[in-house]
Simulated scan of single mutants.
Amino acid sequence: MTQVQLAVFARAPVAGQCKTRLIPALGAEGAAALHAQLVERTVKVAMSVAHAEVTLWTEGKADHPFFQYLACAYPVLQWRQQPEGDLGERMHQVFVAHQQPTLLMGSDCPVFTSALLTEYAALLQQHDAVIVPAEDGGYVLVGLQTPCVEIFRCVDWGSDRVMDQTRQRLCQLALRWIEPEMLWDIDRPEDMQRWADMRK
């Protein structure tokens, strides 16, 4: 199997600056702690994929103690700072930097497994794009064969229209894409029970 490029977006777990919708339920410190837990879980799953080269694209202070911990715990993990721009521009620049088929994922989907990521990598070999929609109307993973900035334009990031607008862009560009399944991520207090059930 050829080498798999996996890119993970992660924000520094700073209280009050991450998982803000969970603060009413967990408090600022609790939400940040959960975020750190999810980031490390995502990194561990990505690192377990055979033939994978994993790059953590960080937002916020690169010298945050949590990132320093990850650097020690996972020494073969690659590191890059997220570029400037809105979410679409930052995602596009990831694909530009890798310049080969790449799967880019967020760090708050606890359903990812090594088997799923391996499956998505195989599907990307047969399609221009692989996108895994999220239940909230966005998506938790996007894979591209080659960079294509138009996919990320005219999208209302953070809204429940992201996936629908992305489908429109893919159709307009006449790209071959596949949506293997719909998954969920942890953004709202009601997601916490599913997370707790998974860990039983």
Rank of each mutant, 00 (worst) to 15 (best):
V111Y: 14
Q172N: 14
R167S: 06
A52Y: 03
Q145A: 11
V43W: 05
L34D: 09
C148S: 10
Q68K: 14
H98W: 13
L26R: 02
A32M: 07
A32I: 02
D63M: 02
A115I: 02
W184A: 11
R199D: 11
D156M: 04
I186E: 03
E190P: 08
P75S: 09
W79C: 06
Q145R: 15
L141E: 10
V4A: 02
L103Q: 00
D86R: 08
A62P: 00
E84T: 12
R80A: 14
V132M: 05
A32L: 08
G27T: 08
T113L: 09
A12R: 01
T118G: 12
H51A: 11
G16S: 06
L175T: 07
V142D: 04
A10N: 01
E135K: 13
L56H: 01
R11L: 15
L173I: 00
V49E: 06
H98A: 13
A129V: 15
V140N: 11
D191V: 02
C18N: 04
L103K: 02
C18D: 02
R194L: 09
H92G: 10
Q78L: 15
A134F: 04
V149W: 12
I151W: 09
V8D: 06
V43S: 04
M198L: 15
R167G: 03
C171S: 14
I178S: 06
Q93M: 03
R169D: 08
L38S: 03
Y139R: 00
K44R: 14
V111H: 14
A46K: 06
Q125R: 12
W177F: 14
R161P: 07
D160S: 14
D197F: 05
M105F: 06
E40S: 01
F67K: 02
V149D: 15
H127Y: 03
Y74K: 02
R176D: 13
E181N: 10
G88H: 00
E135Y: 11
A15S: 13
V76C: 14
M198R: 12
Q17A: 13
P147W: 10
M192H: 11
P147Q: 01
D156G: 07
W79F: 07
A115P: 01
W177N: 02
P75L: 09
G106R: 06
G106W: 05
K200S: 15
D156P: 10
M1S: 12
W57Y: 15
Y74I: 01
H127K: 01
T42C: 07
R188L: 12
V49H: 00
V149N: 15
D187P: 03
F66Y: 08
M198S: 12
G88W: 01
A97G: 00
E84P: 03
F9T: 10
S107G: 03
V155D: 08
R153S: 08
S159E: 09
Q168E: 12
G88Q: 07
L87M: 08
A7K: 05
F112H: 11
K200L: 15
I23V: 15
P189L: 09
M163N: 11
V94K: 00
I151D: 00
V130Q: 03
A12N: 03
R169P: 02
D63A: 10
P75Q: 07
C148Y: 07
V162F: 02
R188N: 11
V111G: 10
R194S: 04
L87W: 09
V76R: 14
H64Q: 01
A25D: 04
W195Q: 10
Y74D: 03
